[in-house]
């Protein structure tokens, strides 16, 4: 059996890649994909622990997290389409009307 901490390290790496993607990318969809990567890293962590503890609790959490991510994607993509209508681009740097 593969030790749990292998999965934990992998999910920490995936989460960090996701965070780096959010902070460095300019394209809205790419940023959103990076966020999805973070959420999937979380799912992997839950699954690894659930396997280690032999619990259903963590597994069920994963289903809810997937549902949350799907709902977020539905609204998020609509927001991007609306942005494209206004600006003809989904580069988030173009959303710069407000600043202090």
């Amino acid at each position: 059996m593969i030790p749990t901490h292998y999965f934990l390290i992998l999910s920490a790496v995936l989460f960090s890649i996701g965070v780096c993607g959010v902070l460095t990318r300019k394209n809205g969809i790419t940023i959103f994909m990076s966020i999805e990567l973070m959420v999937n890293a979380v799912n992997l962590t839950f699954l690894a622990y659930a396997r280690q503890f032999h619990q259903l609790h963590g597994l069920i959490f994963v289903f809810f997290v997937m549902a949350i991510a799907a709902a977020e994607a539905a609204v998020g993509l609509a927001i991007f389409i609306s942005l494209f209508h206004h600006k003809e681009t989904i580069d988030v740097d173009e959303a710069n009307l407000m600043h202090w």
């Binding site: 809205g28 998020g76 942005l83 988030v92």
Partner: peptide, 10 residues
């Protein structure tokens, strides 16, 4: 408003 919702969403 669109820009605000984009920022809050991300």
């Amino acid at each position: 408003a669109n820009e605000a919702s984009l920022k809050y969403f991300l």
